[in-house]
Design a protein around this nucleic acid. Structure first.
Ligand SMILES: [Mn+2]
Ligand SMILES: [Mn+2]
Ligand SMILES: [Zn+2]
Ligand SMILES: [Zn+2]
Lengths: 145, 145
DNA sequence: TTCCTTATTGCGAAAATTCCCAATAAGGCG
DNA sequence: CGCCTTATTGGGAATTTTCGCAATAAGGAA
């Protein structure tokens, strides 16, 4: 999979935003680094290539690209934010508060919930990457014992 | 509504934790300050009464009381964490990414979703206070126009 | 290609949050 | 009531994230 640079750039310009080398490099970093990429990992990556690119820009651009639905952000078990490409089929997380283990949830299980929000509240939930916290099979017993 | 101090203390001690004046004061602060209380607001409150109580302790105790299900934490529109008492009937949020407006969601709308997670994944989602981000009635049109 | 407008960046300071560790003090036990 | 174990705190440093603003440069128009 390779993201369509030309299409993304066109989209940004059409919305009045600018395509800067910083934005392109940061997006590329997230793409190359894979899933659940932290701002610090992005900074390390881009810093080698563009040593003057500042941390502030990394944070700003990650936030910006998320607003543009080009990236998806996700809360990890430690409460920190991570990012990844927002393409294709999203997936979600079940995060155990006790053992920190992480289970992936297919997008399909959210369909009916989204639909309910849509029809009953006229609210379109952004489902690019959700995290639900709770307790997994192994840990849910030990709590109530 | 008044929370049961005696019962909470007993519960904590039974689990091997200690009931400290700091923990009691911080819990009291959240209770008195109401919904969506930020760590800084808690610090300001307790600092007047106990000037040596440190910020680190505020963060630690808020986190701790959340683990103990005495408090509930919630992500606000600005991405920051807030806390509130975890008692009785929970409610949830629909937060618009465009206009930052916040709609309250009754607990009931999550029932079927929780049940699905429970039966299909044997995962007990903690529903003390969830936030769903997306786009509200007014803002969802302007996006696709 | 050059010019202009203004979106975006870099940098340093500020703010928010976490970490570390020696000092403190709960609370169980005798 | 004292003693001991060890959970918890205070305080400051470290880390993470945000802010403010002057300098820069994207890109539309001429
Ligand atoms: Mn994921
Ligand atoms: Mn709320
Ligand atoms: Zn678990
Ligand atoms: Zn809105």
């Amino acid at each position: 999979m390779n993201y369509n640079t030309t299409e993304i750039n066109r989209q940004l310009r059409k919305s009045g935003f600018r395509v800067t080398p910083q934005r392109q490099l940061i997006l590329d970093a997230v793409y190359k680094l894979g899933e659940h990429v932290t701002p610090e990992a992005v900074y390390d990556y881009v810093h080698r290539i563009a040593p003057t690119l500042s941390r502030a820009t990394v944070y700003r651009v990650l936030h910006f690209l998320t607003e543009q639905r080009i990236l998806a952000m996700v809360y990890m078990a430690d409460g920190h934010l991570a990012y990844e490409m927002a393409g294709a089929e999203p997936h979600h997380h079940l995060v155990c508060r006790t053992c920190d283990s992480l289970f992936e949830l297919p997008h399909s299980v959210l369909r009916s919930f989204r639909q309910t929000m849509d029809t009953q509240y006229d609210f379109e939930i952004d489902v690019s990457h959700l995290s639900f916290f709770g307790h997994c099979t192994d840990c849910r017993d030990s709590t109530g014992a």
